[in-house]
Amino acid sequence: MGPAPRPCPFRNFSMSADSPFVYLCPPARLVTIRFDGAELLLPDGENLAASLLAAGIDSFRHTRKSGAPRAPFCMMGACFDCLVEIDGVSRQACMQTVVEGMDISRPVGATHD
């Protein structure tokens, strides 16, 4: 037997009990943002797409053609499935950080071309 994995004591901490994601350790400072009208507490300065996923948000936008829901796929700025509108401007959530007071909405059908 090799060394047993040493779990972080907080590994079951999560922003949302329904989230398919868990934090290794609890995030430090939380700030309030708005997502589709609802208030969310997200970790200040952390990656926006990751923080939304951990908060249990599973659909970021809907496609223009069929209206199908989409969520982050690549997390590296290449696929554009994480596009959201931040204070009215279309942005890739995976390339943004959480800033207090952000007002985010799901772009319905709109893409960025």
Binding site: S19, P20, F21, V22, Y23, L24, C25, E46, N47, A50, S51, L53, A54, D58, S59, F60, P69, R70, A71, P72, F73, C74, M75, M76, C94
Partner: peptide, 21 residues
């Protein structure tokens, strides 16, 4: 939604300390 690349999972871990359950 829920389908990602393996690299994306790694980015979640490296950048945010987040893992899929």
């Amino acid at each position: 939604p829920g389908v990602m690349t393996a690299g994306a999972a790694q980015i979640l871990l490296k950048g945010s300390g987040i893992l899929p359950r």
